[in-house]
């Protein structure tokens, strides 16, 4: 199993698509950061308009924490999309190049083989999240410094700098579960459809539908609270003044369960399919 994972990591590190994906993520991050700077100023104007009538403001809210928070808000579509393309490619490339058939003629377990692909997709997603977190913080804090963070979630929630930093780090950790979920789903979809282009289209479709449904409340308890699409913005709960930890733990545990379920479905499909 260890050898299989190492082999998958080696393949991932030696395919051009991986580096194109990383470059794309960093370019998107740069664009989001620039737009966040200009958007941030407008957002603060709207948010603080009422308060401006009664108060003078001492200090600035247009700082690195706000930039990182806006990046956090913006990347939960672009990032999974790129990671889904790379993760799906872990399987479809092998299928397209017929190395999959060669591998299956070797004395290796089909289950171990496909699980190693899932694990590499998970590891790659985590590495990208950490890269994104570190780079967004380094750029934002070095250019804009730190300070209080203001977030609007029905009320204006102000967090002092140290607390804002803690919550942002936790939000990235929490958000990484969402990204991992989509990566795992894309591998499962790739196993199901096999063809590279179709796998990308289906993965993108899945992501778009998930994002659309996230904003829809049907008034049905299981859908609004327990359906996987509704768990993808759990990280936002970390920006309520009082953190509802039990809600966050529950949502994350449920999302991990869905992730394992999708992985299980992928393994089952692969095991039953005559690849050789």
């Amino acid at each position: 199993m260890k050898t299989l994972i190492q082999a998958e990591l080696y393949k991932l590190m030696h395919q051009r698509m991986t580096y194109f994906a990383l470059a794309a993520i960093l370019v998107i991050e740069g664009i989001v950061l620039v737009s966040a700077y200009f958007q941030g100023s407008a957002i603060l104007d709207i948010l603080l308009d009422n308060l401006r009538e009664s108060f003078y403001f001492q200090g600035t809210l247009l700082n690195g924490h706000l930039m990182v928070y806006l990046i956090l808000n913006s990347l939960w579509f672009h990032l999974p999309l790129i990671l889904m393309i790379v993760s799906a490619g872990l399987f479809t490339t092998e299928h397209k190049e017929r190395t999959l058939q060669m591998m299956m003629q070797q004395p290796i377990s089909k289950t171990h083989f496909i699980i190693s692909k899932y694990l590499v997709a998970v590891v790659f997603s985590l590495v990208v999240i950490v890269l994104l977190m570190v780079s967004s913080m380094m750029i934002s804090y070095s250019l804009f410094g730190t300070g209080d963070l203001v977030v609007y979630l029905g009320t204006l929630n102000f967090f002092q700098s140290a607390e804002a930093f803690e919550r942002i780090v936790l939000a990235y950790l929490c958000g990484s579960l969402t990204v991992i979920f989509f990566s795992v789903v894309s591998v499962t979809l790739a196993i199901w459809v096999r063809d590279t282009t179709i796998a990308w289209i289906v993965s993108a479709f899945f992501l778009i539908i998930s994002n659309l449904l996230l904003k829809v409340d049907l008034g049905i308890d299981w859908f609004d609270n327990y359906f996987f699409v509704k768990l993808n913005d759990t990280w936002q709960l970390l920006f309520n003044t009082e953190i509802d930890w039990s809600h966050i733990y529950f949502n994350n545990a449920l999302l991990v369960t869905y992730t394992v379920l999708f992985m299980f479905i992928g393994v089952m499909i692969f095991r039953r399919r005559d690849v050789a």
Partner: peptide, 10 residues
Amino acid sequence: SSEDFVLIPK
């Protein structure tokens, strides 16, 4: 003056 962001009543 303050190290934090503060609201000063007008």
